[in-house]
Design a protein around this nucleic acid. Sequence first.
DNA 1: GCCTAATGATTAGCCAGCTAATCATTAGGC
DNA 2: GCCTAATGATTAGCTGGCTAATCATTAGGC
Lengths: 197, 197
Amino acid sequence: MPYFDVLQLRKLPYSQLPNLKSKPVATLRPFADRVVDRSTLQNWAQQYAELDIPSVEACLAFLRATADVQTALEAHFARYGLSMGKFTLLMQLFQAPEQGFTPSECAERSGVTRATITGLLDGLERDGLVERQPRLGDRRMLSVRLTEEGRSLLVRMLPDHFCRTTGLMGELTVSEKTTLIELLQKVQAGTKAMLEP
Amino acid sequence: MPYFDVLQLRKLPYSQLPNLKSKPVATLRPFADRVVDRSTLQNWAQQYAELDIPSVEACLAFLRATADVQTALEAHFARYGLSMGKFTLLMQLFQAPEQGFTPSECAERSGVTRATITGLLDGLERDGLVERQPRLGDRRMLSVRLTEEGRSLLVRMLPDHFCRTTGLMGELTVSEKTTLIELLQKVQAGTKAMLEP
DNA sequence: GCCTAATGATTAGCCAGCTAATCATTAGGC
DNA sequence: GCCTAATGATTAGCTGGCTAATCATTAGGC
């Protein structure tokens, strides 16, 4: 759930995505954008000295962008029957050496737990995009590899994928992209403050 | 799962978060940052004319920041026994009129489905932070309100919350915050390209 | 050489999104 | 006035994160 809606912003209702299986039946109806009310924010700022308006606005803008991009990526991957996690996994295997990766290697490279990888592999294997084989030499490990079908799915989708990635950043000039990267790195550095005990 | 790890970036391993209940046992070990390899990117760019390096880099930076902020917020809310969704809901009710909101209103304001609200309310009600009561006049509807306990939890946590939000943006100057907001709006506009049929 | 500890994969179970279906209630057309 | 359609809430079931526990296998110390 989008956190920023505390202050009445909104994300794209999922049911409005194009190309997803079905019509909404008893789900959210579209509703007008509710942009954050300056006076509400100022009101809060009077009650809480800790509230810094520009920071909150930047944070809300970030979360709003986050939610929209997330939604858009999900819709993109859904066209190919994939989720972000599954695509990530496939791309890793696409670049993998001959013998593939072990599930643990996949987990480590992805920054998710092994349990999550097990689940994703179950799905990908069910869809015939990936195969698990015993690893010679150490019977605890498995080799995970793309099947031909998996490889061809990627080859088929990558042009579209890169094209849409370019489109996502299409409103920014090259120098704006550079600036954005710098500013995002500063936000990332700020997460330290959130994580502190 | 963080999509950007296709190109070997990483997010903070969940198990390294401070203040979460327990020690990692059989989970991810820390591993070195793998920054995207320029030459890999250039290599790919040769194979796929659609790949625009600055766009991909900006996209990866964004997704990386997204994942880290998400993780940090989750850790922050976890200190108070909340998730982002629950916090959002509580904040809405905090500002609600006397009679509270109906679950549907909550859903609409949050941009999530009613089913999701039902689940969140179940959890919040179980924890005694919120109460559901029948609505006079229309027996299909419910009134959802904060309990005293819910209200006092918010009052207790908000100073810390705003403080940490300010901290999150603490590395940026005021004018950088403004710039960031502008650039993020452009990224948001770019999601159109992702959503197109 | 054996026994304990470490490692790899899986399983079970929680959470919070989602869709689709169901049920109760209300509203509206004829 | 009644019956159908719309509306509000819930439920069931899927997904993909997570933790914790389990099980098999391997490695290492003594």
